[in-house]
């Protein structure tokens, strides 16, 4: 008798566990945010590209630097394949995450976001350990011929912080926890490895 009731109780507990998790997933899914259109974002690539990728990035994250290099290579090798949008997601664990996002965001109005994006990520190892990375950020700006005073003015304004925070809030509502997180045609992929698998799969199925 005890054996029989133990089986029944186990089944009931197991069912409750499954229902609780699935129920909570439904609730979380209902409150989940949506990927917004390109307002406040940085975009490159063919407008009609078959792979529309949105990347949530932290400029101090090493995996983001590798991921950006990978995407750049793919976009050069397969022009027209990808339309890339970058959104900020500076992580609290990275002390210069917010500042680097600020510098990058402030290059947008001078039309130099992408060269600055590539440079700041490729030199990440040079500035991420610095106590104050501002001189390194400014040096990169100088190399790209940016108006540093305009960058300074931009950094002192509230608009840049608002843009970055808006981006981060959007990411949080999408349940993003780590960077880089990519949305390929709306489907979530976390980290370069998953992204690579998806792009490779697409190329195998459709070619260039």
């Amino acid at each position: 008798m005890a054996k029989k009731s133990k089986k029944l109780v186990s089944l009931i507990v197991l069912t409750v566990c499954i229902v609780a998790v699935l129920g909570m997933k439904v609730v979380v899914g209902m409150t989940k945010g949506k990927l917004s259109a390109d307002a406040f974002t940085k975009v490159k690539g063919n407008k009609n590209a078959p792979l529309n990728i949105t990347e949530f990035i932290d400029f101090q994250c090493p995996a983001c630097a590798h991921g950006a290099m990978y995407l750049k290579e793919v976009m050069e090798k397969h022009p027209g394949l990808i339309r890339l949008t970058v959104k900020h997601f500076p992580l609290a664990m990275h002390q210069h995450g917010m500042l680097s996002a600020g510098y990058a965001e402030c290059t947008v109005e001078q039309g130099k976001f992408w060269p600055y994006h590539d440079l700041i990520l490729s030199r990440q190892n040079n500035w991420k350990q610095l106590e104050d990375p501002r001189p390194a950020f400014e040096q990169m700006g100088k190399e790209l011929g940016l108006d540093l005073q305009a960058i300074q003015n931009c950094l002192e304004g509230m608009a840049v912080v608002k843009t970055i925070e808006q981006s981060k809030t959007e990411g949080q509502a999408l349940n993003i926890r780590s960077t880089p997180t990519y949305f390929v045609n709306g489907k979530m992929f976390v980290g370069q490895k998953s992204l690579e698998q998806e792009i490779t799969k697409y190329l195998e199925e459709h070619g260039d």
Binding site: K25, V28, N175, F189, Q197
Partner: peptide
């Protein structure tokens, strides 16, 4: 377990991948 289950599984997949121990 619950925290991992209610979020997108891709977040935990990324953690599993970072330990680089298993095939895809």
């Amino acid at each position: 377990g619950f925290e991992k289950l209610i979020g997108p599984y891709q977040n935990f997949l990324y953690i599993v991948q970072s330990y680089d121990m298993l095939p895809a």
